[in-house]
Simulated scan of single mutants.
Amino acid sequence: MPYEWKTAPDAQLQEMRLWPHQSLPARGFAAFVLATFTLILIPIFTLLGTVLLWGMLPFVLMAVGGIYLALQSNYKSRQIEEVLTLDADSARLIHTNPKGEVKEWHCNRYWTQVLKYERDGPVPHYVTLRGEGREVEIGSFLSEEERVALYDELQRSLLRGT
């Protein structure tokens, strides 16, 4: 799952780090672009030695460049991180978006509520934290099954501290 708990030995401080699933690592990215370029070049080999090669080559390079830019843009948009810290008295969520902007939320742990919206949220099983007059989302980029598991784990963790 794309989240992990870091629990201190005394178990007074718990930290959960969440991130989007990274399905294409850097080596896979390079291999995909290279394979695409190679497969696009196969029909171009028949044009070697003709004037048509120079007419087709810019379009081939634009296609490969477009794939590269699209994958790079997708990679940058997945640079989201959320860190939930629970200590004896408080709950704190720090959300870092792809542009590097940081949003923080904190609340007294006793008053923190974990809510799950089955169908009413922007995604199924939408999980939020409520407290201090605010409601913030957590893990909206996770899959449906991961959000269900996240909700259960957050419920247990918040109850354990009270």
Rank of each mutant, 00 (worst) to 15 (best):
K99G: 02
S23G: 10
M16K: 08
N74M: 05
A31N: 06
F141G: 04
W5T: 14
T38W: 09
E118V: 11
R92Q: 13
F29W: 06
P124Y: 03
Y75T: 00
T38H: 00
L52M: 08
V60H: 01
G28H: 05
H95T: 09
E144C: 08
I67Y: 02
G28T: 10
A30N: 06
P58Q: 11
A63D: 15
G49I: 02
T50Y: 01
E4R: 15
T50I: 04
D89N: 15
P124A: 04
R17C: 06
L158M: 15
V60E: 02
T36V: 08
M16C: 14
W111N: 09
Q79M: 07
K116S: 08
T36W: 01
R92F: 06
R78V: 00
R134T: 02
K99H: 10
E145M: 11
I44L: 14
I94Q: 12
T162P: 13
D10T: 12
V114Q: 04
R78P: 00
M62D: 14
L93N: 00
Y151I: 08
A35L: 15
S157F: 03
L41I: 08
G49K: 02
P43H: 02
L71A: 00
T7W: 09
E15P: 05
H21E: 08
T38A: 15
F32P: 01
Q12L: 15
G65K: 07
P43V: 02
G139T: 01
E132L: 11
N74S: 08
A35E: 05
K6Q: 12
K116C: 09
A30S: 11
W105A: 12
S140M: 06
A11K: 13
E153V: 03
I40K: 00
M1W: 14
F32K: 00
S157I: 09
D120S: 05
I40C: 09
I138A: 12
L158F: 14
G131C: 12
E145V: 13
T7N: 11
T112R: 05
L24C: 10
A11V: 07
K99T: 06
V114Y: 06
A149P: 11
G49N: 06
L47R: 00
L154V: 11
K116Q: 13
V60Q: 03
R130I: 07
P25W: 07
R156Y: 12
G49S: 00
I44K: 00
M1Y: 13
W105M: 04
A91L: 03
Q72S: 03
G28W: 04
L142Y: 02
A63N: 06
F32R: 01
T112P: 03
E4W: 12
V102E: 13
V60A: 13
E118G: 10
D87R: 09
F37W: 15
E15H: 10
V102M: 05
L48V: 04
L24W: 07
Y117Q: 06
G49M: 05
G161T: 10
F32W: 07
E135V: 10
Y68E: 01
G100I: 07
P124Q: 02
L57S: 02
